[in-house]
Amino acid sequence: MTSKTSSQKIRATIIKIEGWLNGELSRSGVYVYRLYLHQKQREYEAKLPLAIEREEQLRLASQQAKLKETERIIKTREKEALKHADTRAIARRALGKTRQIPLVLKTQVIDENNIKFEGKCPYCSNLIGTNRGHIDHIYPIIMGGLTKIENLLYVCSQCNLKKSSSTLMEFCTSKSGLNFEILSKELNAVGKRF
């Protein structure tokens, strides 16, 4: 029996060698290899959308993380800016460099105008009603003027809007046609320093 088995092995080997020589085995080997490649390509193509989707998800997650970090930085900077703005506002108030005029000071300026200028605008001499006037910084805050009684006047709204942020000299010479020397002497006489 062992001899038959060995002879069968020998015949199988001979058949394989003949197949190689005839090219049959190589063709079938190439065919099998091609099937293998097609199967692997199909597996890759099936996995590709999942990989692309994962990559897209990672990219979106990264963008969201960057956006959250940017928002956090902006909020932190806004908080710091508010702290500094509060500090600057306190310093301005302490130095008198603020546009907000306390009610007590407003009342003093209006009363002073009623006494010293008889309720008339110091610039145009028109009568000012109690609710129609503005408090003017003679020397503008934007140029370093202070919110102190010596730098404040109760004037008519038209003159204050014309004057805007200009100095008294600019207002007299270019915007109103007033005589600067006369007006400055009048204001100095009533205790205004600008």
Score class of each variant (00 low, 15 high):
residue 73 I to Y: 02
residue 41 Q to R: 15
residue 174 S to L: 01
residue 74 I to C: 08
residue 34 R to K: 08
residue 191 G to C: 06
residue 181 E to T: 15
residue 81 A to H: 05
residue 177 G to A: 01
residue 76 T to L: 13
residue 93 R to T: 14
residue 9 K to S: 14
residue 27 R to F: 05
residue 184 S to F: 03
residue 141 I to L: 14
residue 77 R to C: 09
residue 108 Q to T: 09
residue 155 V to N: 03
residue 113 N to Y: 00
residue 92 R to K: 07
residue 171 F to M: 04
residue 101 I to G: 11
residue 119 G to Q: 01
residue 56 E to K: 15
residue 82 L to F: 04
residue 190 V to P: 04
residue 144 G to R: 04
residue 46 A to Y: 07
residue 117 F to A: 09
residue 71 E to S: 03
residue 183 L to Y: 04
residue 33 Y to P: 00
residue 21 L to Y: 00
residue 159 C to R: 04
residue 76 T to N: 13
residue 5 T to H: 05
residue 178 L to K: 04
residue 143 M to I: 06
residue 122 P to H: 01
residue 58 L to K: 13
residue 3 S to K: 14
residue 145 G to T: 03
residue 26 S to M: 11
residue 78 E to G: 00
residue 102 P to N: 12
residue 122 P to I: 06
residue 41 Q to I: 13
residue 9 K to F: 01
residue 80 E to D: 13
residue 53 E to Y: 04
residue 177 G to L: 01
residue 147 T to R: 02
residue 168 L to S: 01
residue 69 E to I: 02
residue 105 L to D: 02
residue 91 A to M: 10
residue 84 H to A: 15
residue 77 R to T: 13
residue 72 R to G: 11
residue 41 Q to M: 12
residue 26 S to E: 15
residue 124 C to I: 06
residue 24 E to W: 00
residue 22 N to I: 01
residue 46 A to S: 08
residue 165 S to E: 07
residue 32 V to S: 10
residue 108 Q to R: 03
residue 1 M to N: 10
residue 182 I to E: 14
residue 35 L to D: 13
residue 103 L to I: 14
residue 146 L to T: 11
residue 187 L to H: 00
residue 81 A to G: 07
residue 53 E to P: 00
residue 22 N to T: 04
residue 154 Y to D: 07
residue 164 S to L: 03
residue 119 G to T: 06
residue 37 L to M: 12
residue 89 A to M: 09
residue 54 R to Q: 15
residue 141 I to P: 08
residue 65 A to R: 12
residue 50 L to F: 03
residue 166 S to R: 05
residue 27 R to M: 06
residue 72 R to P: 01
residue 80 E to Q: 10
residue 104 V to Q: 08
residue 72 R to E: 14
residue 75 K to L: 09
residue 172 C to P: 05
residue 15 I to C: 11
residue 132 R to V: 04
residue 130 T to W: 06
residue 35 L to P: 00
residue 51 A to Y: 09
residue 83 K to H: 01
residue 16 K to S: 11
residue 44 Y to A: 08
residue 79 K to Q: 10
residue 186 E to I: 12
residue 23 G to M: 06
residue 184 S to V: 13
residue 79 K to F: 06
residue 128 I to G: 12
residue 80 E to I: 01
residue 43 E to S: 10
residue 24 E to I: 07
residue 88 R to F: 09
residue 90 I to F: 05
residue 142 I to S: 15
residue 24 E to C: 01
residue 175 K to P: 00
residue 117 F to L: 12
